[in-house]
Design a protein around this nucleic acid. Sequence first.
DNA 1: AGCGAATTGTCAGGATTCGGTCAGGAGCGT
DNA 2: ACGCTCCTGACCGAATCCTGACAATTCGCT
Lengths: 222, 222
Amino acid sequence: MTRVLIVEDNADLAYGLRNNLEIEGYEVEVAADGARGLERARAARPDLVILDLMLPELDGFRVLRALRAESLAMPVLILTARGEESDKVRGLKLGADDYVTKPFGLLELLARVEVLLRRNAPKVTDSFGDVEIDRTTRMVSRGGAPVELAPKEYELLLALFDRDGAVVSRLELMRRVWGYSDAVITRTIDTHVAELRRKLEDDPATPRHILTVRKVGYRLKR
Amino acid sequence: MTRVLIVEDNADLAYGLRNNLEIEGYEVEVAADGARGLERARAARPDLVILDLMLPELDGFRVLRALRAESLAMPVLILTARGEESDKVRGLKLGADDYVTKPFGLLELLARVEVLLRRNAPKVTDSFGDVEIDRTTRMVSRGGAPVELAPKEYELLLALFDRDGAVVSRLELMRRVWGYSDAVITRTIDTHVAELRRKLEDDPATPRHILTVRKVGYRLKR
DNA sequence: AGCGAATTGTCAGGATTCGGTCAGGAGCGT
DNA sequence: ACGCTCCTGACCGAATCCTGACAATTCGCT
């Protein structure tokens, strides 16, 4: 369930990477150019981005800069052609976490992917208040006692949690949890939020963690 | 320097393996058919042989048998196509030390290569609850009593077990156990899970180890 | 402060989706 | 042909989800 976004215009290379990453158990998405890559990074929030520097139009540098400018902090692994030493420096300064020089060994790349993901998520259990989230088992507990969350509830919780306290708009929630791109007219989100509060808050009527931000959405305070 | 002999008629695959093994620091030789493979094994005495079963003319089984008949005792790692379960058994009976099913992950293969080269004969029996798994003999027992598992059931059990309690998505199970990577519309996985529960759980209706994770897949709690 | 519109909270039904179960049949090795 | 394994589709119950009506709250405005 670890999601990887590959931003690579060379279809063959992208295909090979995708295959091997999928065999390793990752969920892979491919974007063929910088603009689409940026868009997918925003919408899908992958756990890792593999980013080619040489892209038509919007190149890797700009994509990376844009990502960081938007506080999208997932690790980024840069693919760069050999002999572009200055590129490496530039990339790392811009906030890339690692780079691999083409042509690269698949093994080397996969190893680095693992390292990056592990480094970035050393804590297996996230937590806020007395609530713990274990992403590997998809289990949530409160004060040590397991809490049963329905799939949508769990996804919703993660969507809020991953924003690290920032507000998540209704539209974003719709996209990330429900996969829609439209605004919402029903009470769907609210209902699920209410259910989360019922299960995770001491006093669901006066929530201390899952907070409403009027006219915008919700945010999760740790 | 550790020397590895690859007996593989698919040039692309052989090339990829060679590259990655060389990156790992092994000295690699490739033979494109069984006869040449046998000849090279005799002459070069590699420390490990990676042997494809599907070879033109002299197939992998014969090569393996010939090797053993000549008391060439180096570890042999079998490459076999998916769905040829009996191949594995036959291969192991003939003295192969391990096998990898195509399509395989590079990491997995390299890991097994390492294990084979490093070990003498470490007999590993994994276990959870009162269930024991002996990978060398493919035997599973429960409370000491042997349990007969069909090949797919065994593979499924391993796929779950190897994730160490983490959730394994249906997609991933499809890939690891069934070798194909499309969305699941049938009840194949569920049926096999049910069979596993019937054979390994005290109360199959309320499983304590093989747990369902709705909308995602299954996980095995130890 | 009081009012009204907009927004969110709450709730319960009904619809939908999902997993468990089963039996039939195909495929394959013996 | 027989038996074992595997796949599949149908069926069912249960979990889950959505929805719309209504209540409560917030906030801008007078």
